[in-house]
């Protein structure tokens, strides 16, 4: 009898501890978002979104950084998607399981853990200097595409792997070739999962600062980029720039920009969750 009570007590204690741990992170996030909202929300209006940067905090807007981020996002998607998905398909369906492929696999996982500034240095050397792209949107996109490539590959592989083996069997048994099986069965069935992974990877890319600073993205760009070869800035860099200014007005701007950036990542994550749920339903 005593034992049962003891166990129940332990259960209660752990439950309380678990709740506390869970809440810690959430509460901190809530405080952070709350204070940002208080500081920045009043600053967000159409003018703020469409204004070019300025020396006066009241006139300065997020337009160039927002457009820079959108350019980066689109180009990074275009570059990383075909590379990542093709590599994942190769590794999952075509490559023979041997020593070489397992070395390859381990190293792709390792790449996902390489600090982003290292990718910046790589991008600086290869894209900016050797390929002479300069500090352009294109160089930035290639660098970020490399950065998220491991994430795209790993998540795509997981989604393809999640397609039941019985589907492959059925397709092959009807006389389908490998490519037909991949393109007509595996990719459609894993589409939601792949998209989820890609969006999450991109929402990481949109928040990256260090690698872009290394390749030479500028803190002050007078105009939004109009071609892939233009110089650019992105939202995190703009935020960093504003915060480092002495005038109080720029701090408000930074808070407003943080709200915008958070909004973008939350929306992207929301879309990812939506597709994941939809996809899971389809497989059942």
């Amino acid at each position: 009898m005593n034992n049962i009570r003891k166990n129940r007590l332990k259960d209660q204690i752990f439950r309380g501890w678990g709740i506390a741990c869970t809440l810690l992170g959430l509460v901190l996030l809530a405080i952070f978002i709350g204070s940002i909202l208080i500081d920045g929300l009043q600053r967000i209006d159409w003018d703020f979104i469409t204004s070019l940067p300025s020396r006066n905090a009241e006139n300065a807007g997020i337009y160039t950084a927002l457009m820079g981020s959108i350019w980066i996002l689109v180009l990074t998607t275009i570059i990383s998607l075909p590379l990542g998905i093709a590599a994942a398909i190769y590794l999952e369906e075509y490559s023979k399981k041997n020593r070489f492929s397992s070395i390859l696999e381990v190293n792709i996982s390792n790449l996902a853990g390489v600090p982003s500034i290292i990718y910046g240095l790589l991008g600086l050397e290869i894209f900016v200097r050797i390929l002479e792209m300069g500090a352009s949107v294109l160089a930035g996109s290639f660098t970020l595409a490399l950065l998220i490539l491991p994430i795209v590959i790993v998540s795509t592989r997981e989604s393809i792997k999640a397609v039941p083996k019985s589907i492959r069997d059925a397709s092959y048994a009807l006389g389908a070739s490998k490519w037909q099986t991949v393109s007509m069965q595996l990719l459609p069935a894993s589409f939601g999962g792949i998209l989820t992974g890609v969006i999450l990877a991109l929402s990481r890319a949109v928040g990256e600062t260090a690698p872009l600073i290394v390749i030479g993205a500028l803190a002050y760009v007078p105009f939004a980029p109009s071609s892939p070869m233009d110089e650019f800035t992105v939202m995190p860099i703009q935020i960093f720039n504003w915060i480092s200014r002495p005038q109080a007005g720029f701090e408000v701007n930074a808070a407003a920009a943080i709200i915008m950036l958070l909004l973008i990542t939350f929306i992207m994550n929301g879309i990812a969750v939506y597709f994941r749920n939809k996809w899971q339903k389809k497989l059942k």
Binding site: S166, I167, S171, G175, M184, P188
Partner: peptide, 29 residues
């Protein structure tokens, strides 16, 4: 060869597609 030698598996394994597309798949490929 596999078009000439069909196979039915232990667990029913329809494709996650419509009934029509399931039957049509072997012809579409």
């Amino acid at each position: 060869l596999r078009k000439q030698v069909g196979m039915v598996f232990q667990k029913p394994n329809p494709f996650p597609k419509s009934i029509f597309e399931n039957v049509a798949y072997g012809l579409r490929i």
